[in-house]
Design a protein around this nucleic acid. Sequence first.
DNA 1: CCGATGACCATTT
DNA 2: AAAATGGCCATCG
Length: 111
Amino acid sequence: MKEKNDFFDQVYQVVRLIPKGRVTSYGAIAKYLGAAKSSRVVGYAMNASHSIENIPAHRVVNRNGLLTGKMHFETPDTMQKALEAEGIQVKDDQIQNFKSIFWDPMVELEV
DNA sequence: CCGATGACCATTT
DNA sequence: AAAATGGCCATCG
């Protein structure tokens, strides 16, 4: 077995750990991995998640709690519907109470 | 093989 | 205070 130390796989691991009804940001994951400057790469990893399964990318949003990547799903509504299905209130692509449901890997996982 | 791009965030001007 | 850009990694053409 090869442990993929690739940034992508590490991101997938964290994304999969996101509890239901919670959301996190790209920067939070990047920071948790120790690459705050690679927040962009985290977002791109989500784009690659299309090739992988079990990647709840809908639970990952930008720093403003805005559904930036909704257009990358099957349909632009898939992301919002998935979030609402978990009890997350989303309006105008903006997560309500985002700060309340924000799941910080550095705090929850606490290295 | 090389160039360009992409679901971001933080800092500088 | 607002706007622009820099930095990161991998994948696509």
